[in-house]
Every structure is written in structure tokens, then in C-alpha cells.
Nucleic acid binder design. Structure first.
Lengths: 110, 110
DNA sequence: ATAACACTTAAGTAGATGCTTAAGTGTTCA
DNA sequence: TGAACACTTAAGCATCTACTTAAGTGTTAT
């Protein structure tokens, strides 16, 4: 549906804010309501709602309202994709260093 | 020197832009000059310089000027820290699911 | 010396972001 | 029924971001 690029834009943007990372931190321990997410944050409830909207738009978090409470939880798919993007680049970078070291070894007897 | 939180703010913020990710993508293949980084991007050179400044401020990239050319390369430390932050959260989330499954197994014979 | 090159600085701008307060909506409990 | 609760919407505002163009600076090749 979405380009990988757009997914990563939203995911990294969502993770770039410490309040949102704190919310993710809380949610990896298990589902929580909006109020529970808000409690440790020095911020108004609408502020928290806006952060939640960013997390949901990125696909990192999903929520469902039952009665008057909204329960939020992690969806790990986008988290995986972000992790994978970084891991892949680190691997490429390391692979290049290995090749470079090998080349230097092979040519050191000049 | 810097709080882990501040490092991650800058790292994820830096990775949230597709032009900057393209620059990282190029740099994992090996060092490049500013012009080389700029070539595939549909953007003025000062625009590229500003993206480079963001990447350097985050610690993802380091650069050095020799003569009139500036050569940029990846510094993998911050990339590792960002990857680690995500990996840790995913692990916590999965561990919780495991405990949950175990609990359900243990109590299914009611 | 001089022209081309590879950035670099400065200044301006449209739109996004991260809050706020005030005023809702719908749900649940006494 | 009515108060308390758990959000939700709307509007406003100060920054911050991602560009742009125009005008530099210092380096290198001719």
C-alpha cells in the first residue's frame, strides 16, 4: 500500500521524540490506556493524544476504544522494518570494511 | 557526554528524511564527497549541505575537508545505538507475548 | 594570473511540529 | 438523573524544518 520509504519516514519521525519513545517503552510491557500513557508525561492530555496520533499514523501503535477508554498496544511490524533498515546498512558497512581489510592483507607483501 | 535520549532524538530525526537516508545508503558503500552525495538528489547543493549538517550533528556521519573537497563517511556507533534501542523494545515485546502464551497454556485445563 | 571547481554562508519562506487552553462528546457509577 | 470520568475537537501559537537563490571563500589546473 505504502512505499517502504514513506513507512520509514513516519516510523523514524515517530521515534525521534522522547515522549513518544517513552510511550513505546511503556507499551512494550503490555497494553495501556491513554491516561496510563499520559501519567508519566509532563504534558496535557491533548498533547498526549497528538503523540498517539503520530504513533498510530506510523503504524507503530494500534488502539481500540471500548466504552469510554481507549486501549493502545504495539504493532511490531513497523518496528521490525525500521530495525531491519538500520541493520542492513550496518551490515553493508561492515562487509565493506572486511573487503578492505582483506585487500590490504593480500597486497601487504609488496 | 550526551544523554542517550538526546542521541536517539538526533539519530531518529536524521533518519526520518528520505534524502538523508539516501546519503547514508551511499556512504555505507564507502566514503564520498559532498558533490557525489548531491548528484542523485534533486536538490541544490546548499540543501545537501544542510542535510549533511544534520547527519553530522547526529553523529551518524563524519567528514573532513582536504583541499577544496570534503569527504564524508559513516560512523557506525550511533547507528548501532539506534538499532539497539529498537531491538531491545522488540525483544521486550516478544518476551511478554511468550510469557502470555505460557500463562494461557498453563491455565487452559480449567 | 585567471578561470573553473567544490563547497560555504546568509537570508528568506512555506509548511510542519509540539505544545497550549477551552470547550466539547459519550460512558459509567451513585 | 446527574456528576465524574476518559477522552476528543478545535483553535492558536512559537519554533523548527526543508528547501530556495544569491553571493561569498579558498583550492587547483592552465
Amino acid at each position: 500500500m505504502f512505499r517502504q520509504d514513506a513507512i520509514l519516514d513516519l516510523a523514524f519521525q515517530a521515534l525521534a521524540d522522547p515522549s513518544r519513545r517513552a510511550m513505546v517503552d511503556r507499551l512494550v510491557q503490555g497494553p495501556a490506556t491513554v491516561s496510563e500513557l499520559a501519567k508519566p508525561l509532563a504534558m496535557s492530555l491533548p498533547g498526549v493524544m497528538q503523540h498517539l496520533a503520530v504513533l498510530e499514523a506510523s503504524g507503530l501503535v494500534i488502539s481500540e476504544k471500548v466504552g469510554r477508554t481507549r486501549t493502545c498496544k504495539i504493532d511490531p511490524k513497523v518496528l521490525s522494518q525500521a530495525e531491519h533498515w538500520i541493520a542492513e546498512r550496518r551490515a553493508l558497512w561492515e562487509r565493506r570494511l572486511d573487503r578492505l581489510g582483506q585487500f590490504l592483507d593480500e597486497t601487504k607483501d609488496d
